[in-house]
Design a protein around this nucleic acid. Structure first.
Lengths: 197, 197, 197, 197
DNA sequence: TATGAATGAGCATTCATTCAT
DNA sequence: CATGAATGAATGCTCATTCAT
């Protein structure tokens, strides 16, 4: 079997990405020490450099993989043949599930650093793009209120979801999971004043 | 009489805080070098240590001062004797104005870093607290839809505002200032589906 | 019968020595990476260690082989049954030929590093020894001027040849090959002032 | 006195250059550890970086300063109003004196590394240029034998001097200092065969 | 024997902080 | 009080060498 060697290598690489996600999420890019990642991954420091040219490159891979996972989850929900309400609820549950499972990584992916790091934007941009498409698809269904600026609304939605989950993750006992999803969904749909159409 | 000496000292301290806001906002806590702040403030590195015990303390002061400014602006608006709609619009205009003027600092104050930095939460918490109070005050006016979870809604509001402005600041030509404020206000009030009461 | 296996092994070893000569000559002992030599030789890094105990040992072999080649060339010329003048010219042509063909290796063999690396001396010492013998052989022929310190003169000769060729190799268009050999030969024999006996 | 601070700084810088000359000469650029230089100079490692951007820059300064010293010594001799023979002897004594005092540095300045380091050439080039000028100045005095290629002869001279001194420095008891200078001078003037004009 | 992923000691460099001036 | 040269612990990264496949 010629693949044994290669399989081991991929396994090591994968361990590094997981460990990187863990530690970068907890301490940020600058706050993370290469040695922490290596220890977490159970490999020697030098091993990181046989898989990635430098710390930054591993960070990028962590962000890329995280983005892929979160976007894939949303897209999978969008592909289901169910009514809009169900679909939105399922998408929301998917996002909440990801946040529950990956806590710190979820925050890392959706947050912004101090500067102009484009990586921190990519996930937000990608989700916003998906949402804009949804709005456009639903344009004539009457669900969407008239006068809505899709691009702006998408950003608002993402911000609302991220900040609510960020708060909730600090102490999940604050709200029941189902109440959380309902609050999120209702805010997104009706704001604080609006009544259903 | 505070001597000329004392006035000079306060002037220097103030320059350090401004420079710190500038540089921390642009590069984050870890990404910022003491020497950068000193250069920006036009003083020697050592001078920083005659005003603050360490880098962290200056960062805290920058965050504290920023929080104070932004909260004071909102509270000032709340103190006005105008109708709710006007008040909300004025508060929003105040926040947009702050974001326009302080761009990077606005992001620094409202964003989250990777880890669990409590400083980055304080502003969000403070604004959320103000909003919850507003909701409670307006409980019987009928403006607020029934079933709204105030705490959750406050987080959603803050998230929506921050993310929309974060996006807008990247390229303010994206939307006219007035359209931005209206979009923000409408999303906050009606979400994407709701119609006014 | 040396098996096919053994032949392959010698072939690999030889490729390593050639590659080592190339890379050590270009970048020096410390500046050379094992991986560079392996790549140049077209083998894996580990292979080097089945032929040599470490990097230093390969370096020694490169130096040893280079010394052998250059000394053998000079000795071959000395063995010819021709008059002294012809012999000296042929020896010089041999050295120039080696320098032309092996450029960087020639410099590596004849130069000195910063420290006290004895390897870098061996070639110079060996040639100097040959030259001293020549002087002694020719003692009574009258060719050699009286009062010459053989040992010192041999060092001067070697230095003159090496430095001139080092300069010439940088840009061989500087001098015609024949003029170079004549200049070298004349300097060695007559210095800058002396006239022929 | 405003200069006290500055004087201290220059003193430190000067100590670093001296220590660098010592250690680089003994172990070469790659073989030298920053910590060795710092220890030799009696300062902390970081101090080196307040004076030079990196190790390479200190190396360059060492080479530059060494070149300046050695060239200045030769030029000073050339400025004397004495006959050629005296002058040449004095120049030679100056070079021997430098080699005696600075042993390892002398070798570092005049030697070549493995690769194409232009720094190692500068001193040789500079001395060669000086010698060519001397040959040209003395063109009509009849001292110089006809047919001499000045550029080539200059390189030969430098090589002869450097290699002889390199050998002598290994064990100065090999030759008496005066005999050394005479041997050097004679070889340079008459080669191994030539008789004085 | 050949391979190349893994190792980890070693090193150059950074930067928050100190303190003599 | 202000200065900025000096400090040295901390850290990212390199690369000769090993060893399981």
């Amino acid at each position: 079997m010629p693949g044994q060697r290669e399989k081991q290598k991929q396994e090591t690489r994968s361990r590094l990405v997981s460990a990187g996600a863990e530690v970068f999420a907890a301490r940020g890019l600058e706050g993370t020490r290469i040695s922490d990642i290596a220890r977490e991954a159970g490999v020697a420091m030098g091993t990181l450099y046989t898989h990635f040219p430098d710390k930054e490159a591993l960070f990028e891979e962590v962000m890329r993989a995280g983005k892929e996972t979160i976007i894939a989850g949303i897209e999978a929900t969008y592909a289901l043949d169910v009514d809009h309400e169900t679909r939105d609820r399922l998408a929301m549950e998917g996002v909440v599930g990801f946040a529950e499972t990956h806590g710190a990584l979820f925050r890392l992916l959706l947050s912004r650093g101090g500067g102009d790091d484009p990586l921190r934007r990519e996930v937000v941009d990608a989700i916003a793009t998906l949402r804009v498409k949804e709005f456009e698809d639903g344009r004539h269904s009457g669900r969407i209120r008239s006068g809505l600026d899709y691009e702006a609304a998408a950003r608002c939605e993402v911000g609302a979801v991220f900040h609510l989950l960020d708060w909730w993750l600090d102490d999940p006992s604050r709200m029941d999971r189902q109440d959380l999803i309902r609050a999120l969904s209702d805010f997104r749909r009706f704001g604080v004043e609006g009544s259903g159409a």
